[in-house]
């Protein structure tokens, strides 16, 4: 048992969750055009419990936010909080994605 009470980082926490990534299919996609044209509030960045949405660092080539589905916990928050319908949200294909064991 861990004797250390040092809090785990989000990355360390996400490492505990078993995720089978489907490298051929991104179950969630954002539309950078919409994000760039309309978004000033970035609800996805604040709402995501797995930090899949991050502010674009440096120059905004594509849009203000970058998204990676690999650590996605499939909660559904981003789909609901985006006021511009820029999040095309689907479930991963059967057998892929999170596989909770203790939740």
């Amino acid at each position: 048992m861990s004797k250390s009470n040092k809090p785990k980082t989000l990355e360390e926490k996400l490492d505990l969750t078993k995720i089978t990534t489907d490298h051929n299919y991104a179950h969630i996609e954002i539309n950078p055009e919409i994000c760039k044209a309309k978004c000033t509030t970035y609800e996805c960045v604040y709402g995501c419990p797995a930090n899949c949405y991050k502010f674009t660092e440096g120059e905004e080539i594509e849009g203000p936010v970058v998204f990676d589905y690999v650590a996605c916990l499939e909660c559904g928050t981003c789909r609901l909080v985006c006021p511009h319908d820029s999040v095309d949200w689907k479930y991963p294909k059967g057998g892929f994605g999170v596989e909770f064991k203790h939740s």
């Binding site: 505990l16 419990p49 797995a50 939740s103």
Partner: peptide, 28 residues
């Protein structure tokens, strides 16, 4: 969201609750 969760866990009431317990899964 993840930061609000972490700060919530900083409360002494929660800290005592989870003392020496080992996290084994994170979900949402």
């Amino acid at each position: 969201a993840p930061e609000v969760f972490e700060e919530f866990k900083e409360h002494s009431y929660i800290k005592k609750l989870l003392k020496d317990a080992e996290m084994i899964e994170y979900s949402a």
